[in-house]
Design a protein around this nucleic acid. Structure first.
Length: 195
DNA sequence: GTTCTAGAAC
DNA sequence: GTTCTAGAAC
């Protein structure tokens, strides 16, 4: 016995499973979206982060399919050097902002991407401890460090699962002073004092 | 990566 | 009672 009668057009079948792209392909989709693209060269694209974690937050990606930093080898040194040139270009254009460039040690989204993010970390999209720690602990691999590792080792070594767990559970600490907030709302309130 | 929300923390 | 965090999402 059905619990209620069906409305016009309604069926007993579940909606046909949408062939929706997996969320981890979101950056690759954004690269095709003219509204998201900030700059473009033959080899790289710069997009605005859809959920910026600071007042300025861009992503630099290769047009070529490279899934993550763990696929890099010495043949990519020119490409990564161009990432650095792009970072310098953007710094020169935004001289009133303190910008950092780097990569997440454990990226969630596909396609190699370098974050260019301002130090303020003032954003409504910054909501969780993982968000915070992914930019303020060694979970964040500065651009120069990654370039050096690639030159010296010819690849980027994965961090251990224990290291990963440790970094994302690091107690909150301000990225501009020694303050240790009790929780995220307190951190966000405190960040305003550094503006 | 985000959204949602149960239940922990206050 | 309200705020906040952390885990599931088929």
């Amino acid at each position: 016995m059905s619990k209620r009668s069906l409305k016009d057009g309604e069926t007993l079948q579940r909606p046909v499973k949408e062939s929706k792209k997996h969320w981890s392909l979101g950056l690759v989709e954004s690269m095709k979206d003219p509204d998201a693209v900030y700059k473009e060269t033959e080899r790289i694209v710069v997009i605005r982060d859809k959920y910026p974690k600071a007042r300025v937050h861009y992503l630099v990606l290769p047009t070529k399919e490279i899934s993550s930093i763990y696929k890099l080898d010495k043949t990519h040194l020119d490409l990564i050097t161009e990432f650095g040139t792009m970072f310098q270009t953007i710094k020169n254009e935004l001289t009133d902002v303190d910008l950092r460039a780097g990569f997440h040690a454990v990226p969630s989204m596909q396609r190699l991407h370098m974050h260019i993010i301002s130090k303020d970390m003032d954003s409504k999209c910054l909501k969780t401890k993982i968000h915070w720690n992914s930019f303020t602990t060694s979970f964040f691999i500065p651009y120069e460090d990654l370039l050096r590792k690639l030159k010296e080792n010819g690849c980027i070594e994965r961090i251990s699962s224990d290291m990963h767990k440790g970094l994302i559970s690091t107690p909150l600490k301000c990225n501009q002073c020694s303050f240790e907030p009790k929780n995220i709302p307190q951190l966000k309130q405190h960040l305003l004092t550094h503006l």
